[in-house]
Computed example of a mutant assay.
Amino acid sequence: MSLSGHAAERTRVECVEASVRLLDTTLLRPTTFAASAGEWWSVTGPNGSGKSTLLRVLAGRASPSEGTCRVLGRPVGSSDPSHRREIASLVDSVPVASDMTLREQLGMVAASWSGNTPAAAEDAVRLAGELRLTHLLDRFPHELSSGQLQLFLMSLVLVRPGQVVILDEPERHLDSDHVKNLADILQQRCRQGATIIMASHDSTLIDTADRRLELNYG
């Protein structure tokens, strides 16, 4: 199963009967879906149903045992720099530098992916403001609360110009007000054309998404 013509141009993420097994354990049952440009998909299901496994496959951190997954028209895990540039993910732990401030790290990531330009730096500071991190930019990661650190990790992902954004429980450690603010930011990212694939247990984020993919136990 594959898409062609105009549909293929708009399709950003496509899985066809993709499954993951580890020895005799099924981590992800056969899963099929296709996400288009500008769509926000919420992946839901009980713990152990394969949500994180699916996201790790889409982010190129794992491979399907059977079936296929393609992101931006290429098999998952492509090492091509131009392909990796378009995929931003918060799935596994994002490394942070203990001896650099939030401002320095956010600016470095922005420059790495968008060029060392005033516009990239301005976009990074603007994003920090949207995530309510402006007053924390000159702090170090160890000086943050768990919720503030989660927002900082989100900033490192969202400052990238990725067409596809993959998020595993972005609501971790956030209170309801910050979750609502994050939902607004992600919704705006979709309006700008990004495709978001997100696993979540939070009703605010799930209800804001355009589509839902419900997974069952393997």
Rank of each mutant, 00 (worst) to 15 (best):
I196K: 03
A62V: 00
V71A: 01
S203V: 11
A62I: 00
P95S: 11
A7M: 11
M100R: 08
S176W: 14
L144A: 07
G38R: 00
V76P: 00
P170D: 03
A199L: 07
L23E: 13
V165P: 06
G38P: 07
D24R: 11
R12D: 06
A183K: 02
S63R: 12
R191N: 05
N181Y: 06
D175I: 07
V94Y: 15
E214P: 14
L186G: 03
Q188I: 15
P75W: 04
R56P: 08
R29D: 06
P75V: 02
S78L: 04
A209W: 01
E214K: 14
S19D: 07
T68F: 03
R189A: 15
A88E: 02
R126N: 14
E17V: 02
L22S: 12
S114I: 06
L22G: 13
D202E: 05
P75G: 02
L27T: 08
V71H: 00
G115W: 04
E171T: 08
R189Y: 12
S89E: 03
T11R: 06
D207P: 00
S82E: 15
F140N: 01
Q105C: 08
H135D: 09
E14Q: 11
R139A: 12
P118W: 07
T117W: 11
T134V: 13
S79A: 15
E66R: 13
A194S: 15
R21H: 13
I196W: 07
G38C: 06
A35S: 06
G162A: 08
V20L: 05
L106T: 03
